[in-house]
């Protein structure tokens, strides 16, 4: 009650546009959302410099799709969390609609339902933001899998659970006739899975998002 009265009194003498502007940023609209929007602005600031004389890397869509697949492996019902996060960060409707999001992910040529489309730099930037903030939430789990300081048996158990779930997701969604996918499924060393986890761990936070974004482009 007190919080509500305070800004109202302050706004009593202000002009209408100012009031609207204040309403957008005030606690009445929702501080949590504002926090995320501010965060997203921060994220964009590192990419705003733009990459001159750069092109999107060939494996960018594949890498991003696999990173989301790892997120889905680590968290059950991760897609719902992804949509919620996308909404909180302030991403476009493309990232909050299931169908649109699936279409974006189908730009991965290794998928069963490959759409022969490519990602735009805006889509890449948004996906990087989304992955980076999801990785930050899942960091304790990622860290556990990457750590070599914990007991071997426990680590092996964790890796078994993680790899079997990821492999089942891969067989479900990827084109199994492709030799690369078969090699991923049959790989017992899980080298690529580990690589994906390392990428996720290094892409947490603002600095991590900048790093991940840079890795998805190539200089001419």
């Amino acid at each position: 009650m007190y919080d509500f009265i305070k800004p109202t009194l302050k706004l009593a003498n202000q002009q209408t546009p100012v009031i609207i502007e204040f309403m957008k940023t005030s606690n009445l609209v929702g501080t949590h959302r504002q926090e995320f929007i501010n965060e997203s602005k921060k994220f964009k600031s590192c990419g705003e410099s733009g990459y001159l004389n750069c092109s999107i890397a060939k494996d960018a869509s594949r890498k991003l799709d696999f990173l989301i697949l790892v997120i889905e492996t680590l968290q059950i019902n991760a897609t719902d969390s992804l949509f919620l996060k996308a909404k909180n960060i302030g991403l476009s409707d493309e990232f909050t609609s299931r169908v649109q999001f699936w279409k974006i992910r189908c730009s991965n040529p290794l998928r069963k339902s490959y759409t022969f489309s490519s990602l735009s730099s805006e889509q890449i930037d948004s996906l990087v933001e989304l992955i980076s903030s999801m990785a930050e939430n899942l960091y304790p789990l990622i860290r556990q899998l990457l750590s070599s300081k914990e007991s071997k048996t426990l680590n092996q158990e964790r890796w078994y659970l993680f790899s079997s779930r990821l492999k089942s997701l891969i067989t479900e969604r990827m084109n199994v006739n492709r030799s690369y996918i078969t090699s991923l499924i049959n790989d017992d060393k899980h080298e690529y899975f580990r690589e994906l986890l390392v990428i996720l761990s290094l892409s947490c936070g603002k600095g991590g998002a900048c790093r991940l974004r840079a890795s998805l482009y190539n200089q001419y």
Partner: peptide, 18 residues
Amino acid sequence: LDDSELSDLTQCLDLLRF
């Protein structure tokens, strides 16, 4: 440093620079 420690250290330095 193992992978987890490297990412910890990297994130720590990221926090500082931003």
